[in-house]
């Protein structure tokens, strides 16, 4: 192997990498928050809504989970403009990430809600708690213990998955690496740097989430 690595160009492009990484964090952070909101509504609809609504949510989850994210991005980014909705790449990426993330998050939240046995709810109601109290005092604290740990993993998966948004040239980290690569012809170095940043971010977040879990729930729960 007589290839000489040149990371000088990468150092010169550090601004682009940092900006790309910030955009990746912004996209995944926004998508996570939005999909969590959608997921709570979706999971409630899925578990206690009227039957047509339950089936609709179930169909949505199955369709998203059984098709590739890349194809979903293409449908949104190329499809929506044909019905008059103009999108730039970042908006398209965000919408795709939210729609994709919601499906997975609905399943996480649903698992948390369904894990609480009906007997507990009946017991709480029999003790005279009204529905909101039952939810707040009995269902929620137990559900959170089940929901929060996989949510952390889901965020990291979403962040890594957001690299696929480079296919429509959203300004995130993988696109930044592709730009640097195109300009410097240093493909391997550019992708190694980007991969190292993703790796550092996923380590950072998994450590942070593990700490939060420990602080919030005491002993770490096995998943």
């Amino acid at each position: 192997m007589n290839y000489i690595f040149h990371f000088g160009d990468m150092w010169n492009a550090r601004g682009e990498f940092v900006e790309g990484a910030l955009m990746t964090l912004r996209l995944s952070g926004l998508a996570m928050v939005a999909s969590l909101v959608i997921a709570i509504l979706g999971a409630l609809a899925r578990t206690s809504g009227p039957k047509p609504l339950r089936m609709l949510v179930a169909a949505y989850v199955e369709i998203i989970r059984n098709t590739p994210f890349l194809v979903q991005i293409f449908i949104i980014f190329f499809g929506l403009p044909t019905v008059g909705l103009r999108l730039d790449a970042n908006e398209g990426a965000l919408i795709a990430l939210i729609l994709n993330g919601s499906a997975y998050t609905i399943e996480i939240v649903r698992a948390g809600i369904e894990n609480i046995s009906q007997g507990q709810i009946e017991g709480a109601l029999a003790l005279g708690l009204h529905r909101l109290q039952t939810f707040r005092l009995v269902v929620l604290p137990q559900a959170l213990r089940i929901i929060v740990p996989p949510l952390g993993s889901q965020f990291i998966l979403l962040m890594l998955n957001s690299s696929v948004c480079s296919a429509i040239s959203a300004d995130e980290l993988t696109s930044a690496a592709l730009d640097v690569q195109g300009r410097t012809f240093r493909a391997f170095e550019a992708f190694i740097v980007a991969a190292a940043i993703y790796f550092a971010l996923s380590l950072l977040f998994s450590t942070a989430f593990a700490t939060i879990e420990r602080l919030a729930f005491g002993k770490r729960i096995s998943r």
Partner: peptide, 16 residues
């Protein structure tokens, strides 16, 4: 801990 897409790029360019 890294995106699959970057892994594919790295293998592709790593071979070269």
């Amino acid at each position: 801990g890294t995106p699959l897409l970057l892994q594919l790029f790295l293998v592709f360019f790593g071979g070269d």
